[in-house]
Design a protein around this nucleic acid. Structure first.
Lengths: 149, 149
DNA sequence: TATTGTTATACTCTATAACTATA
DNA sequence: TATAGTTATAGAGTATAACAATA
């Protein structure tokens, strides 16, 4: 099963699916557990990160970005709001919608979390070759494409 | 610092970490939910798949393969055993250890699960280009390396 | 009547701490 | 005393179904 650099044995698409799925699952388990500040989980961090990157948006829109169902996002937001890391405002013209925004406290936490929390993954990535990292970078948009359903 | 043909812009390692983490999280969420037979979860399936691929092993060894703590594996195995999908035997020389093996029923379920459950991912992978699939295939061992801690 | 979001409920996933049995 | 595994406990993550408020 060894492959020379740059070449790979051809496998079928279902075989690729069978290999990719558990590999994803295991790596995500590890990444999820690399927490320095135990008060913020990966799920919460990812939601905050999206809010920071894309700006304020409705709860439903955020759930869609994060690929979770609305009730799941409700829970995450309740937790974050309670701690003052995000705030909600009513939509100016549609009072059903809650517009969620990250707070300055949220941004501050995000910065320090990112520095400390990324430490493990950053360190791990540092052990790879530049080619392997380039490969990872190229695969991210493919993941996004797959996750887009 | 040469740029190989086909590579994208170079980013820093922490930036790569910040991009990779949420991409992983979101794709795993989607993949986890693609269940045809609702009775078997991705976590259970992955454990069974490892047993099938690597053969019988102790509960602790399996937990290690799957990157979970022993009590988490205990739960998974209790569920699988109850349904006759795995069986346990006591270790011939060390009666503390439980040697776990997949049963013929487990293999059967795994086969049909793989066919049906992989349907979504297989279909999604089919929408990618051959180059993108080759990239995914090459990235799997890198994931395994990262997950190995 | 349709849409946005929340509440109610339930189950899986996962961990840490404490315990049991065996070595 | 050390190791393998289980039990006890707890919380996060996530979903579906039912509901409320608003459009």
């Amino acid at each position: 099963m060894t492959t020379a650099p740059g070449t790979s044995l051809r496998i079928t698409i279902p075989e690729l699916a069978s290999l990719l799925r558990p590999a994803l699952l295991r790596l995500t388990r590890i990444v999820r557990n690399q927490r320095v500040d135990l008060s913020v989980t990966l799920t919460q961090l990812s939601a905050m990160w999206t809010l920071e990157k894309r700006g304020p948006m409705s709860a439903g829109e955020l759930a869609n970005c994060e690929r979770v169902q609305p009730p799941s996002m409700t829970k995450v937001l309740a937790n974050l709001e309670e701690r003052g890391l995000v705030r909600r405002e009513v939509h100016p013209t549609d009072r059903r919608q809650a517009i969620i925004a990250i707070t300055p406290e949220g941004v501050t936490l995000l910065d320090s979390e990112r520095r400390s929390r990324d430490a493990w993954l950053t360190q791990q990535l540092g052990t790879l070759t530049a080619e392997e990292r380039a490969l990872l970078q190229k695969v991210i948009p493919i993941f996004d494409k797959l996750a887009a359903q």
